[in-house]
């Protein structure tokens, strides 16, 4: 008898506060497993952001900061400039990173800050109750786009990985999803690769993970996975946008 799957030691043994079926939990696990498997867990520094994942600092078994809304990339910059040999990563939602924190994110990437961004895109402001996010799809209903996002009125959702991959400082950018086991496996590979890029001091790395918010999407957790697959992936194509050349 052999254990094929057990709880990672990279996460503190406590219940997660997320809604039932919220894929934030899966993403936490992938980050922790990746760090443990790469031998980086003890050295890791987590910068938590403001959003549903604000308490990530409790969950990862490593040192952490709690940053103000949107500023995680700047906090990570300050931290990594001092703690040069530690693995510094942020964990941010789409509102946090792609709205209020756009400047901090873009410039951390442009500077080639040697940090890793775990970017959880659920196309909505989860924590504040389902308002329209910069990533909310055209036509998608939110509490502040009750008739569905209108391109005319509210413009278009931001594709963060595509945008950041145009910057020379970005070494690694990949978009993944966690809507089924096969994609969860791929997501973990990307997260591991991003941390390896940081370890090799190759520059800025970001993994965008498409995630669900059944509570604010008004769907059950299983239907949310389907909604993600049918609606988000066509607009946010999965794949690698940038990776350092092997030498």
């Amino acid at each position: 008898m052999s254990i094929v799957f057990e709880r990672t030691r990279g996460m503190v043994d406590m219940p997660l506060h997320y809604c039932p079926g919220c894929t934030h939990g899966i993403i936490h696990r992938l980050v922790a497993e990746s760090l443990v498997e790469l031998g980086l867990m003890d050295d890791a520094v987590c910068v938590s952001s403001v959003g549903c994942s604000v308490f990530t600092y409790n969950y990862f078994d490593c040192d952490a900061y709690q940053a103000s809304h949107g500023r995680a990339a700047a906090v990570a910059t300050g931290s990594k400039r001092v703690l040069k040999d530690r693995t510094v990563f942020t964990y941010q939602g789409d509102g946090d990173l792609a709205a209020i924190g756009t400047a901090e994110t873009v410039h951390a990437a442009a500077r080639g800050e040697n940090v890793t961004i775990i970017y959880v895109n659920n196309a909505i402001y989860g924590m504040t109750g389902g308002q329209m996010a910069p990533t909310t799809l055209v036509g998608q209903k939110a509490t502040t786009s009750p008739n569905g996002r209108s391109a005319e009125l509210q413009g278009y959702p931001i594709r963060v990985c595509e945008m950041l991959s145009t910057l020379d400082g970005t070494a690694f950018a990949e978009r993944v999803s966690v809507h089924n086991p096969a994609n969860v496996r791929k997501a973990k590979k990307a997260i591991k690769k991003a941390f390896e890029v940081q370890t090799a001091k190759q520059g800025f790395s970001i993994v965008e993970i498409l995630s669900t918010c059944s509570t604010n999407w008004g769907l059950n957790p299983t239907d949310s996975l389907k909604w993600l697959e049918d609606n988000m992936i066509p607009y946010y194509p999965l794949g690698n946008f940038k990776t350092p050349e092997e030498n």
Binding site: Y65, A74, V75, V82, V106
Partner: peptide, 25 residues
């Protein structure tokens, strides 16, 4: 290390990161 931030908001949050790491900043 001197670093020019993208804004004063960026700068003060870099201070937050460096101060949290024990640096004189």
């Amino acid at each position: 290390t001197y670093l020019q931030a993208e804004s004063e908001i960026g700068a003060i949050n870099m201070v937050f990161g460096a101060a949290g790491a024990g640096a004189r900043v």
